[in-house]
């Protein structure tokens, strides 16, 4: 064989892919051709180069974020299933007999939140309420070591309400309260959003992210439309944040949202201080974001205390 082999042929040869006769020809050519032997060496170096590329390790908070997403997926699944299907799941479901091994436990829990591997999530200190489909699931953190460190765990206690009837119009029970409706500016238009008070004391870092996802999930899974109609007077609002009037919240939300869709306005606390939590939808290639805005947040000053990118949110 006198002609040089193509790089493709040499790569196939090196990989043992050539038929015996062809391989023998290439081998004899290689014996007398420094150029082609060099190429074989270089092909091997390609593999070495690929192997030597180093990458950042998995971000510290990604694992928690994925655990939250899995848990959200599990709860979303329960709400969309009939009771009969749900009984197959290893999820505690209010209104149905508890699974035997959990009958004596002290409360409901979402299994995914009890793993020690997601201990950071326990600090979320929040209940997850699924009311729209007639089921209610809540974490019971009273037995969790981290539960006591969550600043407001007492407020997340889910009252032992009478069993949800299963009606699609059942109101949200428990801890999501509704604040004033506000309008904010979105793409030159005014949009209205109902504010809520989940009662969460948001914390910084990855915990903020997880708490924001949980808050949104709770509000979405409560029956918002019903709850809004049920409010006797949307503006007769007397939550802990009543010093922040609706006009200031409106300006604050417009400022923070900066033209993006607002998914949630939670009049809550951040590290113990009054704060407005604003979750905006993903925008173009940018992810959904959660902001914690401080007490002085207004139309002219956002007073951002914390910001987190959010995972893709369940629809």
């Amino acid at each position: 064989m006198s002609r040089h082999a193509s790089t493709d042929t040499l790569a196939s040869y090196a990989e043992g892919l050539l038929k015996p006769r062809r391989a023998a020809k290439v081998a004899s050519h290689l014996a007398g051709c420094a150029q082609c032997s060099g190429q074989i060496q270089e092909l091997h170096q390609v593999s070495v180069q690929l192997a030597s590329v180093q990458f950042s390790q998995m971000p510290a908070d990604l694992s928690a974020r994925i655990q939250v997403a899995i848990a959200s997926e599990a709860t979303a699944r329960v709400t969309t299933e009939s009771a009969g299907e749900a009984s197959r799941r290893d999820l505690p479901v209010r209104g149905r007999p508890a699974h035997g091994r959990r009958a004596g436990s002290r409360g409901w829990r979402i299994p995914g939140f009890s793993s020690p591997l997601v201990g950071s999530l326990a600090a979320v200190g929040a209940a997850v309420i699924v009311a729209g489909g007639g089921y209610e699931i809540a974490t019971n953190l009273s037995s969790s070591p981290a539960g006591s460190t969550a600043g407001s765990s007492a407020e997340h206690h889910v009252p032992a309400a009478s069993p949800v009837t299963g009606s699609a119009n059942a109101p949200a029970t428990g801890t999501v309260r509704y604040g004033p409706d506000i309008t904010y500016q979105h793409g030159g238009r005014s949009e209205t959003i109902h504010t809520v008070e989940t009662g969460t004391n948001f914390q910084g870092g990855a915990t903020f992210r997880a708490q924001a996802v949980t808050a949104l999930s709770r509000v979405r899974q409560s029956n918002f439309a019903y709850a809004k109609n049920a409010m006797t007077s949307p503006f007769a609002y007397s939550g802990p944040n009543n010093t922040a009037d609706a006009a200031q919240i409106r300006g604050c939300v417009s400022k923070v949202a900066a033209g993006r869709d607002v998914l949630l306005v939670d009049l809550a606390r951040f590290q113990g201080q009054q704060a407005t939590i604003v979750i905006v939808a993903s925008h173009g290639s940018a992810p959904a974001m959660a902001y914690a805005a401080g007490a002085s947040c207004s139309g002219s000053n956002a007073d951002i205390l914390a910001t987190q990118n959010l995972p893709r949110l369940p629809a």
Binding site: I66, R88, S115
Partner: peptide
């Protein structure tokens, strides 16, 4: 299947 706890552990084992 349907058990976020078990699935979460599975993920943790393989996540790296």
């Amino acid at each position: 299947e349907g058990d976020p706890e078990a699935f979460g552990k599975l993920f943790e084992r393989h996540r790296d």
